[in-house]
Design a protein around this nucleic acid. Structure first.
Lengths: 196, 196
DNA sequence: GTCTATAGCGCGATAGAC
DNA sequence: GTCTATCGCGCTATAGAC
């Protein structure tokens, strides 16, 4: 079944991502990662200069993909259609193979990764994505709903009523649906605040 | 300004909660907490048996308050009015002095606190609260919206478009409003799935 | 109730053989 | 590319004086 012996570097990344996410970045020692792979700590240091370097390697692609969405959004007019397309693109990104695993790792280790340049960069970009969905000067409920639209897509992957009951595709579709509803609700509110 | 020298035990709890939340549980050493308070590590051990014990002390009241909501909910008929009242009570709980600080600490340190009995208990109770909002057998979007209704109230406190721009009361009110909308939307969907 | 001093451990990281 | 061996550090926690 599955691929026997992918290269060691990838196997380190895979195991590290799992353990950092499940047990926490600080709580996971390089010894644990090495043991799980059947090698020694020293072997890890051949492939990665430091523990933080393993983390950085997860994020290279994520940063680029997120920046691409922001760059595109900024060239577009600030319309409902643009905002909905931002959510579609974000959902697509999350559905890509490892993307939601990396985002979950980041979310669960926010504090431990403080000061880590790559993870702070992703945090900043998330705010720029939210700024595509509403303006900084918009009323609180509009800003909150915009934030929650993104957040909802993460949560749908992360918080799991029953991990086995639904397929990834169902999950991804529901996530986007809910995010779009939150976005619509935010801008309906902005257009007509008295109705609420 | 403010209270000079509250008792040391409370000051330890206050500083620990702040540092555990901002820098992470594992990343915060007892030395840092002691230094911030102008005492030595050994003094902390007079007030708390272990580092984990400090964490446990945060949670005592939280567990009791959450269990109260679940116990109440289970005596009620499963109606829209009951579900809305659950959210109202949850919002009230979060608004109480330290409650959202503790929940934020828990959220940011989920992984580090794995295996800590009190924090796993809170996690379990959160699922019981969600079960007051929808049934385990409900369709995925209904379950997700129920989960997000609770999640939204946390996020409103935690994810902060601009920390200074709004009062706690505005924030609390908006949070509840959004949660209620998600709940309504969940059950409108359940009643009429074809409409979506 | 707070101190000084230290035990004991596991961590991240490195050197150098194979 | 992986190993054995080891360094130096900072951590949680404890003992015992004041």
């Amino acid at each position: 079944m599955g691929e026997r012996h992918a290269d060691t570097r990838s196997r380190i990344q895979d195991v590290a991502l799992e353990l950092f996410t499940e047990h926490g970045y600080e709580a996971t020692s390089l010894r644990e990662i090495a043991e799980r792979l059947g090698v020694t700590k020293a072997a890890l240091y051949y492939h990665f200069k430091t523990k933080e370097d393993i983390v950085a390697s997860f994020m290279e692609d994520r940063v680029a993909a997120l920046e691409e969405i922001v760059a595109w959004g900024r060239t577009q007019p600030k319309t409902d259609a643009t905002r909905r397309e931002v959510l579609h693109r974000y959902a697509e990104l999350l559905a890509r193979s490892n993307s939601h695993r990396v985002m979950r790792f980041l979310e669960r280790n926010q504090t431990a990764l403080r000061g880590h340049p790559r993870s702070e960069r992703i945090r900043d970009i998330m705010f720029l994505v939210i700024d595509l969905l509403s303006d900084r000067g918009d009323p609180l409920p509009v800003r909150l709903k915009s934030t929650l639209a993104i957040f909802a897509m993460h949560a749908t992957w992360f918080i799991d009523p029953d991990p086995t009951a639904y397929t990834d595709e169902e999950r991804s579709k529901s996530a986007l649906q809910i995010a779009l509803e939150l976005l619509d609700s935010a801008h309906a509110e902005r257009a007509d605040p008295a109705s609420r």
